[in-house]
């Protein structure tokens, strides 16, 4: 007879943990979003005024549109860079494949604050790029100082490693011999890529895209320190509701909007592809 203890321990404990510390907080955010804040106090009356403010106040709509545009652009750029990198590493990495991929993970693991500091060293007014330009006698480049371009470069820098890692993991489970077979039958490398490697790794690519899009959508640090006066993004405005302005209820409503948008983006992305065609077989079992 099989003991009933093991399933409870191995599945029940993590489930209870996640419900208590992940699902309940998200629900409490939803509840708070229909209350309101007055003079730093929470007033419990149920209405949708916070959402009405978010929908009608032009500033919040601008922040949201800017965030969506920024996240989309950054995710597309990251995917476009990460694919050749991961593909190059798997094709030509040889025995150093693992080392090369780990090299991409090192910066990702050192945390956002420290990487924003490093970015300041690259893009800031006295940073590397402007230092080089000025020592060559040229004028400093204005486009990268406290603008949306600087935020975008910063976000690409922050999230490129995770996209590369995810696409690399997808390529690792992909049977390279399929490419050899295609080439033997006369396909050019480009055709082999577009007809075999790309469709079979679409699932991994989408996960990488999502893991870049979602944090970018609610980015708080990079726009704050790299973007200029026109660089306020939605996540940054939300963080301010919990800090400087103390309007928690409005911030919670913004959080709900961000959460719904992230989930919708993931849902749309995964609906548009047929998972079985991409070679996804589930969780290590068929």
């Amino acid at each position: 007879m099989r003991s009933r203890l093991a399933p409870w321990l191995t599945l029940g404990v993590p489930t209870v943990f996640l419900i208590a510390l992940f699902v309940l907080p998200l629900l409490s955010m939803l509840v708070l979003s229909v209350w309101r804040t007055e003079n730093y106090h929470i007033v419990q009356d149920w209405n949708l005024r916070n959402y009405w403010v978010l929908a009608t106040d032009g500033a919040y709509a601008t922040f949201l549109l800017r965030s969506i545009a920024m996240a989309t652009a950054v995710s597309v750029i990251c995917t476009a860079i990460a694919w050749p990198v991961a593909y190059g590493i798997t094709l030509y990495g040889g025995r150093y494949k693992l080392l090369l991929t780990l090299g991409f993970a090192v910066p990702f693991l050192t945390g956002e604050v420290l990487r924003v500091i490093a970015l300041q060293g690259l893009l800031g007014p006295v940073g590397l790029v402007n230092g080089v330009l000025m020592s060559l006698g040229a004028a400093p480049l204005r486009a990268i100082m406290y603008t949306n371009v600087a935020s975008a470069i910063g976000l690409v820098y922050l999230y490129l490693p995770i996209v590369v890692t995810v696409i690399y993991l997808s390529l690792l489970n992909f049977d390279q011999r399929l490419l050899d077979a295609a080439k033997i039958f006369g396909a050019s490398p480009a055709r082999a890529f577009f007809e075999i490697a790309w469709p079979l790794n679409l699932f991994g690519t989408l996960i990488g895209f999502a893991l870049c899009f979602i944090p970018c959508l609610s980015a708080t640090l990079a726009p704050r320190f790299l973007g200029g006066p026109n660089g306020t993004l939605y996540g940054m405005a939300m963080a301010q509701q919990f800090g400087e302005s103390g309007t928690w209820a409005l911030g919670a409503a913004m959080g709900v909007v961000l959460f719904v948008l992230s989930i919708a983006a993931v849902f749309v992305a995964f609906r548009t592809v047929d998972l079985r065609r991409t070679g996804f077989t589930g969780f290590g079992r068929s």
Binding site: F22, S28, M29, A210, I214, G235, G255, F259, S262
Partner: peptide, 13 residues
């Protein structure tokens, strides 16, 4: 699939 800042804020609430 939930941004870190949302996890932080919702746990705070």
């Amino acid at each position: 699939f939930v941004a870190e800042v949302l996890l932080g804020i919702s746990s705070l609430i």
